[in-house]
């Protein structure tokens, strides 16, 4: 009975609604957490999985040995590799395509790679303007790797104990 009266008074005085309004009212004056994206950015982990890159050894030789482990492990089947024997009797890729529209950025290719060739960089804002622009070929991936090698090497170094 007392409970009923209490409920009656509470609902008639809009008690709980006022509590709710007070809460949002407090948030009205709270600090705003918006990040102004192009000017400001959130911190990234060294393990961030963004755009892919193919790396080279310091002497300029490409790391990839066309073992096709990444192609096999890729759950989205986004990687296409063709290989042949080079003149110096080493196996190298002739085609290494990643279809970024299929890729789910799981990082399996990176994990499977025995020579740390295919890696995922911190780059997250890239785009394609025409159909096919997001199918990255071997040359494009190598170019990304060359351009960001310092950052990539630094991130690998930082994380090497945990791999």
């Amino acid at each position: 009975m007392l409970k009923k009266i209490k409920h009656f008074i509470k609902s008639l005085t809009l008690y709980e609604l006022i509590i709710g309004l007070a809460l949002t009212g407090r948030y009205f004056f709270s600090k705003k957490i918006t990040i102004q994206y192009p000017e400001e950015r959130t911190p990234q982990s060294p393990r961030f999985r963004g755009l892919h890159a193919l790396r080279r050894y310091p002497n300029g030789e490409e790391r990839c040995i066309a073992c096709k482990l990444c192609e096999a492990v890729c759950p989205a089947m986004a990687i296409t590799i063709k290989s042949e024997m080079r003149e110096d009797n080493t196996r190298r890729t002739t085609q290494y395509d990643i279809d970024l529209t299929k890729c789910i950025f799981c990082g399996f290719c990176e994990e499977s790679c025995p020579v740390d060739s295919i890696v995922e960089t911190r780059i997250l804002d890239y785009h394609g303007e025409e159909r096919g622009d997001l199918i990255y070929t071997k040359e494009m991936l190598l170019k990304v790797g060359d351009q960001y090698e310092d950052q990539i090497a630094k991130d690998r170094k930082e994380e090497e104990n945990y791999r």
């Binding site: 949002t24 009212g25 948030y27 009205f28 004056f29 600090k31 705003k32 957490i33 918006t34």
Partner: peptide
């Protein structure tokens, strides 16, 4: 509404 949701 933005302000009340911690946005600007």
């Amino acid at each position: 509404i933005g302000f009340m949701q911690g946005r600007i």
